[in-house]
Simulated assay, not measured.
Amino acid sequence: MEVHVVSYPLESDAKEKCALAIGHFDGVHLGHRSVIERAVAKASASGMRAAVMTFDPHPREVLGRGSGYAASLTPLDDKLELFRQAGADAVYVMRFEPAFAEISPRAFVEEVLLRLGVCHAVVGFDFRFGHFGEGSAQSLSELGEGRFGVEIVPAYSREGLKVSSTYVREALENGQVELAAELLGRPYAVSGVVVHGDARGRTIGFPTANVLQDSAYVVPRLGVYAVRVHLPERNGFPAQTLPAVLNHGMKPTFNKESIVPVLEAHLLDFEGDLYGLRVRIEFLHFLRPERKFSGVAELVEQLGKDRDRSAELLRS
């Protein structure tokens, strides 16, 4: 899959025609997938490239309309991998810069889409583009008439509710990781590097991998989760996927003052050194909120229960 990072105004024209899915696609949830899959199907039927256009950073972040959008459900690298899995041949990462934010809907069509060789565009029903979002899915169809086809994909609903990035974010904020997985079509995941912690878990019989996120992810609510941890190849060992119990929190039993939340994963039936490895964590089940214990003995007893419950859930 080719990845092209482009800015407005474009420096050159594309050499091949394409069917293009357009959107920010944060999360690449089932609604987003329905848009991308239509572009892939059209490209396959017409002998064109299947392409996706996304915007980076999030338009709301640049325009100051959503402070929470500095964190992503799918940072760019994750998003690109999901586009590849969906069948994209090429991705255009449009830098959302001030000049592009002020572009008119007509200029977006004539100075961006046509120069990228778009023969067919696919957008969601609520797609907006151009200065202050004055362009709509319907106006894109009108502007493209006679020059390229436009397919408008209706809302993707679950039990009467529109699947959206906001809906996924709200599910994660409430610890509803099972609901988030239903909306995404896969478990919600974050990636990061295993770093040295305070080694307290090892002293009480529950060694943990302390994971420092390597991108600004939306992270589920504080609490304890049953997760899967994907390990890369290392020192002659093949890549592995292992069950684990994870605490996302402040460690209130030991910490006397507020600190940054941490991700600590206790891998079940595993021994080894993971420091410096980049791992991926899939959130599967919420077990309980984080809480402060009266002492180490009570904490260890609860950790044993969490470990057993995680093993039971992950087996099933």
Rank of each mutant, 00 (worst) to 15 (best):
268 L>M: 15
162 K>M: 13
205 G>D: 13
279 V>Q: 08
39 A>D: 01
167 Y>P: 02
248 H>G: 02
20 L>H: 03
197 G>Y: 06
6 V>T: 12
215 S>Q: 12
72 S>K: 06
114 L>E: 11
230 H>N: 03
217 Y>C: 04
297 A>M: 05
136 S>W: 00
77 D>N: 15
309 R>D: 09
297 A>W: 00
143 L>N: 02
201 G>I: 14
86 A>K: 01
64 G>Q: 11
170 E>Y: 01
3 V>T: 09
146 G>H: 08
35 V>D: 06
233 E>R: 08
31 G>K: 09
204 I>M: 06
224 V>M: 06
6 V>A: 08
187 P>I: 14
251 K>L: 12
132 F>A: 15
273 D>P: 12
36 I>A: 01
85 Q>T: 02
17 K>D: 14
135 G>S: 07
26 D>A: 11
163 V>L: 03
249 G>V: 01
40 V>F: 02
68 G>K: 10
246 L>R: 08
60 R>H: 10
134 E>D: 10
246 L>I: 08
176 Q>R: 15
179 L>D: 15
309 R>H: 11
301 E>P: 02
178 E>R: 12
80 L>I: 14
247 N>R: 03
169 R>V: 06
261 P>I: 07
99 A>H: 05
135 G>A: 11
227 V>H: 04
13 D>R: 14
280 R>F: 05
121 A>K: 02
34 S>L: 01
302 Q>L: 10
195 V>R: 15
198 D>R: 07
197 G>Q: 10
44 S>K: 09
310 S>F: 00
194 V>G: 04
212 L>G: 07
269 D>I: 00
76 L>I: 12
149 G>R: 11
127 F>R: 02
115 R>C: 12
174 N>E: 14
216 A>R: 11
191 S>F: 05
55 F>D: 10
257 E>R: 01
177 V>G: 14
22 I>T: 04
61 E>D: 11
83 F>L: 00
38 R>F: 03
46 S>H: 12
309 R>E: 11
